Amino acid sequence: MNSDHIDVRQHILDTAKPIILGKGFSAVGLNEILTAADVPKGSFYHYFKSKEAFGEALLENYFANYCERLDSIFNTQDATAAERMLAYWASWLETQSCDDRDGQCLTVKLAAEVSDLSESMRGSLLRGTQQLLARIALCLSEGERDGSLPHYTSCEQTALQLYEMWLGATLLTKIRRDRSALEAAMQSTQLILKIN
């Protein structure tokens, strides 16, 4: 794949993400995306077979970028696993409680909408969240080893518990238009992790 192909494809994905974060997947037509990206319709179909394939690529790109950001937090060498874990959740609290659409969670925005409409997009959401959960569980395990976190019966189950709580808190934040649910999630996280 040549760099022009990658650049135009990535440009379409980058342009579409804030639009879809604002309106949802179904409400956004291809013409709106193509106009914003300044790309002809024929070029779109050169990169994506369908709107559904585009949605799948959008989610895969989102999770790849998310995993890079998560890795940069979790791979900080001069911090304990507990400190890295708290940095991740603090970052989540800040990005999901502000009005910056670009930092909003695409999983929260699209999960309910597309999971019943597109099996391939549901699969992208599932694979992406599994990648995130594996990283969270690994950090919890590292915390057990470095002594900064307690021993858990299952790091994977604890990671799932934390992630589900934060997803729910993010949904409530959208409903309430305040950060109280995310602040409560942070307090509960500190209790689960046994850190202040």
Rank of each mutant, 00 (worst) to 15 (best):
E183C: 11
G24W: 10
Q161M: 06
A36N: 01
C105M: 12
E119N: 06
L126A: 13
K41A: 12
G55R: 02
A87K: 10
G24D: 10
L21S: 09
T129P: 02
S50N: 03
Y163W: 14
K194F: 04
E142P: 13
Q10A: 01
T129C: 04
M1C: 07
S124C: 09
L58S: 06
L133A: 12
I12C: 05
Q104L: 13
E119I: 01
D14T: 13
Y152I: 03
P18A: 00
C139Y: 02
L191I: 08
L138G: 01
A159D: 01
D100Q: 05
V8Y: 07
L162K: 04
Q104C: 07
S3L: 08
R101V: 15
F25D: 10
E32S: 04
A16F: 15
L70V: 15
L59Q: 05
L138Q: 07
I73T: 08
T80W: 15
I195W: 08
A159H: 03
P150N: 13
L162C: 08
A134P: 04
Q157H: 08
E119K: 06
I20E: 02
E183T: 11
S115W: 00
A27S: 13
M121E: 00
I12T: 03
Y152G: 02
N61G: 01
S118E: 02
E52A: 15
S180P: 09
A184L: 08
D38P: 00
W166S: 10
L149C: 10
D4T: 15
L193V: 07
C67K: 13
K174N: 04
Q130S: 09
A27V: 00
T95L: 12
T129V: 04
P18Q: 02
C105Q: 09
N75T: 13
L167P: 10
